[in-house]
Design a protein around this nucleic acid. Structure first.
Lengths: 115, 115
DNA sequence: ATAAAGCGCAACCACAAGGTTGCTTGTTGT
DNA sequence: ACAACAAGCAACCTTGTGGTTGCGCTTTAT
């Protein structure tokens, strides 16, 4: 078992870009906002406030599910969706990496100006 | 001047979803990674490693520029792109909000179980 | 038993996204 | 002056995305 280490920076990007993409939609952001409160909701419940049809909301939920932000559990005739924080923690790591790079660049610039 | 306060939660989503969307592409994530190091790069420089054409890279840069993650400065015959951290700080706020909601939900659940 | 609620599936549509090629315009090096 | 380089512009193509409608299937309520 060689090649155990397939965790390059590029590979991490490949896994995280879809998570960003999943959050790159107003409707899905509002779904996340509702579900991150902890209580699972059925599709009909999630459709309620929206102007969109149930099927549209379903599609959005499947997108979120495909990247693991959300998970569905069938309960009788309804399927309840619940939040999973892991993928979001993942992209927060990535954003922190970016911020860190930037901060280091700034301090390099600063020390260069001072000398 | 009434209506000074147009900063509802929905309005914030409307401004941030495009930032997430801009990051929701592997190529653009790699561009961000290069530029957040502090040094501005020309389009040709940014195209160098990639398999894509210069025009494709240009389009990606315009997407990043349209949400303010990146800014272009014309310098002679080349246009150099430089990173701007502000929009990314914005979405980090949003993600922190989500995480906070989730944590509160967890602790509510915990105290409910304990009693 | 049967009506209604809740979903899933599939077809379809309009349009945005990602990418290419070809050509033009401006800038730099010699 | 002129070749080479950097970039912009426009047309075009293919695929993906967001949305709809219609229909059928299971589960619940009456």
């Amino acid at each position: 078992m060689s090649h155990k280490r397939r965790n390059s920076i590029a590979a991490r990007r490949q896994r995280r870009a879809p998570v960003f993409a999943a959050l790159g939609d107003e409707t899905r952001l509002s779904l996340v906002a509702k579900l991150c409160g902890g209580q699972p909701h059925s599709i009909s419940q999630l459709t309620e406030g929206s102007k969109l049809t149930r099927q549209a909301i379903t599609k959005h939920l499947r997108v979120l599910e495909s990247v693991g932000i959300v998970r569905s559990v069938r309960a009788g005739r309804e399927s309840r969706f619940e939040f999973d924080p892991q993928p979001i923690e993942g992209i927060k790591e990535y954003l922190d990496f970016v911020s860190e790079q930037w901060d280091q660049a700034l301090s390099r610039l600063k020390s260069f100006v001072e000398n």
